[in-house]
Design a protein around this nucleic acid. Structure first.
Lengths: 229, 229
DNA sequence: CAATTTAAGTGTTTAAATCACATTTAACAA
DNA sequence: TTGTTAAATGTGATTTAAACACTTAAATTG
């Protein structure tokens, strides 16, 4: 019988975090210089190894916190990568997690010795191992998520203009959207509060500021709505 | 430094296969009686442990083949489950895979000592560990897949009626569909060949038989189309 | 203070998809 | 030949999605 605990192989299980950032203009990704062999000094995702006493979710958060200082980030599991030779150092599998955060609010991502750094997603250096594949897959997942579940709460300033919200979606989807249709769809969702205030920095006329209506939003989520952008 | 290979914990990594079956009427699931402790004798998913020398995909196929005889099934990775106490026997993570096959063509799923058995999805017994959760998650994924990518090639007889195809989707989605609209949508996909033959078993008039047009289908896939049912 | 400039704000039209009903048709049986 | 059964097809109403361009408010400039 092959399915007994005692005879089964044990393996190293790594975690790699794909942290996307949005800074009001473009999509970024957080990378770190690897500080151990093999591939020491090359750019990689933020990663580490699972401990016996923690779940993958916990490990992902611990590793992210440790290497970047980022705390209390909602990480979502993406996929477990398992090519036998994916890591030339030793037989290692890796479960990838991803998140999207406001990179302006998290400019300080270096933590002690570890120098994590934000890169524009389109100008990021090539990565070690299969990390490039991981990022590819994460982008596809992020795009699907973006048009399926509302995002944005943590990504925009508390008060924001419609154009800012639109830019967020354009950055994620990597395509231009029609202003009027975008506004109509967003308004139809009925989760924004239009303020009396205007943002005067962008134009003479000034553009109205909006806030997310957390209550309505939570209620809609509870009712189990998925939205289509 | 925590991220070195030598100091990292190694863990057991299991695989569990959620095999959905369709038999022209309803959705089924393939379960097996566990033959080792803990929980020996209880119903569980088809599972086993990863070997150091194989990928997860390979392991899932090997385990499935070994315990059920099912060979050459396209398995898709679902999620890696990692609660610390999910398996009381020993600290074990499990990566779940799922597939949907024709259960009529695979009635013989017992393999030697292992007696796998098909259950109607709505009448399945409760499962060990977190296998119930796995099944939940797999069903949701399957439904999303079903309306996104054409399925059915392997699930229906070579020649089938529109109603049979509709029943397949109704079983997966667990809802009734409108006949007229269903036919229109399917025809719009342009991947079926209408035969001159009729199936006379279901009615006096008889209903036309169809075949998948493998060529057109493959071509559409290549063009990267996703379809909406 | 009139004219200009800038981005913000706003609706309508058209096409496509979806839905809900209703009728006709082919084959067989009585 | 007539009745029965499920299959096949048609149509109109409704909803949803996509394309598209002008007006407005306010600061700036001459």
């Amino acid at each position: 019988m092959l399915s007994t605990y005692s005879t089964a192989d044990k393996v190293l299980l790594a975690l790699d975090c794909i942290i996307f950032g949005f800074d009001q203009h473009e999509l970024k990704i957080l990378l770190i210089k690897r500080d151990f062999e093999p591939e020491k000094g090359k750019w990689s995702l933020i990663g580490g190894f699972l401990k016996r006493t923690e779940t993958l979710d916990e490990a992902a958060n611990r590793i992210l916190q440790h290497l970047s200082g980022l705390d209390d980030i909602y990480l979502e599991q993406l996929y477990t990568f398992s090519e036998v030779d994916r890591d030339p150092g030793e037989r290692t599998l890796s479960t990838a997690y991803y998140a999207l955060i406001n990179s302006e609010n998290h400019k300080q991502v270096a933590n002690g010795a570890y120098s994590a750094q934000w890169f524009n997603i389109k100008e990021a250096p090539s990565l070690i191992f299969d990390h490039g594949q991981m990022v590819e897959k994460a982008i596809l997942r992020l795009r699907r998520r973006a048009v399926t579940k509302p995002i944005g709460f943590e990504l925009l300033p508390e008060k924001f203009t419609m154009l800012q919200l639109q830019k967020l979606y354009e950055a994620i989807l990597d395509e231009k959207l029609d202003k009027r249709n975008f506004i109509n769809k967003v308004n139809a969702l009925d989760i924004l509060i239009k303020l009396d205030e205007k943002d005067m920095t962008s134009s003479r006329k000034g553009s109205y500021l909006y806030q997310f209506d957390k209550q309505k939003y939570d209620q809609k989520i509870e009712e189990g709505f998925t939205f289509k952008l």
